[in-house]
Design a protein around this nucleic acid. Structure first.
Length: 492
RNA sequence: GGGUCGCUAGCUCAAUCGGCAGAGCAGGGGCCUCUUAAGCCCAAGGUUCAGGGUUCGAUUCCCUGGCGACCCA
């Protein structure tokens, strides 16, 4: 336990309570029957200096106190808001008023009393009885500025949640967004499923996995980097519409937009193609925006995003030509494409083909310019090993990404269901891995076997849930929408 | 991985050119029966992120390391 004087003081107080027979961590001591928000809603019209005769029980954390001698005002905070406590000697008596005064800011208490308003009109509970529910041993941050230090807010999110309303609002909004996402897919008849997090092969995306070890099997395993390959196995099994909303893990650096574990929603629909999936993504996200914000104009970091459908749809090649003035084609000579990209400031790796080169130009110059919701479609096959070959355009796949505020929000394709083509794509990835590409896709033989049993034409999508929450809560950093973002150890 | 910036009391922040480390809030003592960032009086509170260097003297300048923020790869 910390030897800090402020904590030592409170520990001493704790011992005094126990000596007087007051248990500072009681069980079953008090059950509230109303919340702060309910009180404010019920008595919104009460004038100053009113009595209601209504006796209520509220509970929460004492977050403020104003001591006026024989009269003490307290501020009680529960999960719904704040309510003033009015402790008066006439009601409580000398001894209990002194005990109330002796409470520390941060203590959890239960209070019983009449609902009144003060002379100044502040709705209050006139304390007739109170119970210490849990003693707090550490001082809270400053009442006006709260906890500002970003590092401390993330390391001690519990304190952040106590003192910063924005932290609470963001957590609540995130829960709401996740619930609306689930609702949108549930209403459309999707089955929510759970697939393995521990995997023998980490496939379904191009990323480096975390490695762990299964002791009983004496086998290294990976934390999943995507949900994709197992969900497609379920489509093979005849489950026609499935989705999973879960945590995926990628072994990459920390940044305002990347956390090693993040939340992905993936959904797969039999008989759909990527045009159907564009419509699905648009409809689902508009529903979520409507339900959560009630306004299709969303302010994000100073930009106004218009989510009213239809959203713009543009091919990657057109988008690149529009922004850079350079018309790339998949049929181009590789070195010619490399030269054009170099002219645009891209340093081209020898291993890159035309498709990868175009994608780099897109990511470097075009993506950030797409602020309004935009579907960019027809991605190069070279960077899309799990997407179906385009029905008419050689070298491309039926893949799209949804870009909002200059960032990828969703990624989707007509799924590759030709097992022979899938095997060829995996072989190409294997070759890339042999060339040193650590993010190349591994060969998953069981997934190939599943495809060999036959997967119907299928459309699939993935939505980055954290990024969606960032957009709808106007947060610039993923760390603000994660309750407990990844941090380096403190090194006490 | 590279660059820039930051780290001072429990919290929010000061500290002039390198010259006695301060304030507000919180906490302690006192006054006050209508405050609401309550007010007034008094006292207390520091490994200035860590280690090293320069200097008569370092929160301040230099080096190394830690953690974080932002930008870049």
């Amino acid at each position: 336990m910390s030897a800090h004087p402020l904590t030592a003081q409170r520990l001493a107080k704790l011992e005094r309570y126990r000596a007087r027979g007051i248990e500072p961590y009681p069980v079953g001591a008090f059950v509230p029957d109303v919340t702060a928000a309910e009180l404010h809603a019920d008595h919104a019209d009460l004038g100053p200096a009113s009595s209601t005769g209504r006796v209520v029980r509220v509970a929460g954390r004492l977050v403020g106190r104003r001591d006026i001698g024989k009269l003490v005002f307290g501020v009680l905070q529960d999960e719904t808001g704040r309510i003033q406590l009015f402790a008066q000697r006439q009601i409580l008596g000398e001894e209990d008023l002194e005990a109330f005064r002796d409470l520390d800011i941060g203590d959890w208490i239960g209070v019983e009393g009449e609902v009144i308003t003060t002379k100044r009109g502040e709705l209050s509970v006139a304390v007739s009885r109170f119970v210490l529910l849990a003693k707090s041993l550490r001082p809270l941050p400053e009442k006006w500025h709260g906890l500002r230090d970003v590092e401390e807010r993330h390391r001690r999110r519990y304190v952040d949640l106590i003192v910063n309303e924005r932290a609470r609002d963001t957590a609540v909004a995130r829960s709401r967004i996740v619930r609306e996402l689930r609702g949108a897919f549930d209403r459309r008849g999707f089955l929510e499923v759970e697939t393995p997090v521990l995997q023998i092969e980490a496939g379904g995306a191009l990323a480096r996995p975390f490695v762990t070890h299964h002791n009983a099997l004496d086998q290294d395993m990976y934390l999943r980097i995507a949900e994709e390959l197992h969900l497609k196995r379920l489509i093979v099994g005849g489950l026609g519409k499935v989705y999973e909303l879960g945590r995926v893990f990628r072994n990459e650096g920390l940044s305002p937009r990347h956390n090693p574990e993040f939340t992905m929603l993936e959904a797969y629909v039999a008989y759909a193609d990527y045009h159907d999936v564009m419509n699905l993504v648009e409809n689902v996200l508009v529903e979520v925006v409507d339900e959560v914000l009630g306004d299709r104009l969303v302010t994000y970091q100073g930009d106004t995003l218009d989510f009213a459908p239809p959203w713009r749809r543009v091919t990657m090649l057109d988008a690149v030509a529009e922004v850079t003035g350079v018309r790339f084609e998949l049929s181009m000579d590789r070195d010619a494409a490399a030269g054009l990209a170099e002219d645009l400031g891209i340093s081209v790796e020898p291993s890159w083909g035309v498709g990868k080169i175009i994608n780099e130009v897109f990511e470097e110059h075009v993506e950030r310019t797409l602020v309004q919701p935009t579907f960019v479609y027809d991605y190069p096959m070279e960077i899309s090993p799990l997407a179906r070959a385009h029905r008419s355009e050689p070298g491309l796949t039926e893949r799209f990404e949804l870009i909002v505020a200059g960032r990828e929000l969703a990624n989707a394709f007509s799924e590759l269901n030709d097992p022979l083509d899938q095997r060829r794509r995996f072989e190409e990835q294997k070759a890339a891995r042999a060339m040193g590409d650590e993010e190349a896709h591994p060969i998953d033989e069981d997934f190939l076997r599943a495809l060999e049993y036959g997967m119907p034409p299928t459309g699939g999508l993935g939505i980055g849930v954290d990024r969606l929450v960032m957009l709808l809560t106007d947060q610039a950093s993923i760390r603000e929408v994660l309750l407990f973002p990844a941090m380096r150890p403190e090194g006490t």
